[in-house]
């Protein structure tokens, strides 16, 4: 697993990417403009910004769930469509999205099943993944018998089952309560540390972004673009005390101000329109 993290190929390489929805119509939306984004091997990068800034759209471009209008997207050195077919990434959403008709372990097996793995190795790998997220005892449970946080851990196990070098996460902890959320963040860091997986993480929580990330990418809407990149040099072994650290608060302030800076622009823009 870790050999992927050690390679020099960037996990994500987005160059000059743009996305226009409904081009040429009255409902045309410039969702993303001139995006350059780089996620190094083993790196944890968060996308943060107000709703409508295109952070989820950017994640979907990387996942090849939508095609860019311009520019290029490469994942682990491959063009995005090829990377998707080769399962170079795993994905987790805000809803765990487990299949209720499958047991927990069968949910984790799903991506391997789709790739045509044999039953034996498939089950073995799924059990390894469940142990990784500390749910080994719940393999034969039904998803609806688990709590929200446990379901989300199963979803992470499922995303990592094929050992992809990259994890794409769209507000995966957004529906969890604060206590569970902090616990899940620590777990995610541990799992990524153990597996060497790179992560591209969409959130709208500033402390979450700072706590998890090596870099926080701040975005602004209309049109969606990257305004600031805040490096977070809190070291690699972060724990509960990290949140009490003075440097943690500095970084939170820095990200908040980067987000505010954009708000001021909005105000001035509104004023400008008012003057006209």
């Amino acid at each position: 697993m870790t050999e992927v993290g050690a390679s020099a190929v960037p996990a994500v390489e987005v160059t000059g990417a743009g996305k226009v929805f409904n081009p040429g119509t009255t409902r045309q939306v410039d969702a993303l403009v001139a995006i350059d984004l780089h996620v190094g091997p083993g790196e944890f990068v968060s996308l943060i910004g107000p709703s409508g800034c295109g952070k989820s759209t950017l994640l979907r471009l990387v996942a090849n769930l939508i095609e860019p209008t311009s520019g290029s997207v490469r994942v682990n050195g491959k063009p995005a469509p090829q990377a998707r077919l080769d399962q170079e990434y795993g994905m987790a959403f805000q809803q765990a999205g487990l299949f209720e008709w499958r047991s927990v372990v069968k949910n984790v097996e799903l991506p391997l099943e789709l790739k045509g793995w044999d039953k034996g190795p498939r089950r073995q790998r799924a059990m390894e993944m469940l142990q990784l997220v500390k749910l080994g005892d719940f393999a034969e449970h039904r998803p609806w018998q688990l709590s929200g946080g446990m379901q989300q851990r199963v979803a992470i196990a499922r995303a990592l089952a094929a050992h992809p070098p990259l994890l794409l996460m769209d507000e995966p902890f957004g529906a969890l309560d604060e206590m569970t959320r902090e616990h899940m963040q620590a777990e995610l860091l541990r799992i990524c540390g153990e597996t060497g997986t790179s992560v591209l993480f969409v959130t709208h929580s500033i402390p979450e972004a700072v706590y998890l990330s090596d870099r926080v990418v701040v975005m602004s809407p209309r049109p969606g673009q990257i305004t600031t990149v805040v490096p977070v040099d809190l070291g690699s072994d972060r724990d509960l005390d990290t949140r009490e650290d003075a440097r943690f608060f500095e970084k939170v302030t820095e990200v908040r101000e980067a987000l505010r800076g954009h708000e001021v622009d909005e105000l001035e823009l509104a004023r400008g329109i008012g003057d006209v």
Binding site: F93, G97, F99, E113
Partner: peptide, 21 residues
Amino acid sequence: SATSIELMRSFAASGVQTMRK
């Protein structure tokens, strides 16, 4: 759900696989 369908797509599932699974 739309999420489940995106998930199947992210796993590079074929149309027939999405139908069956």
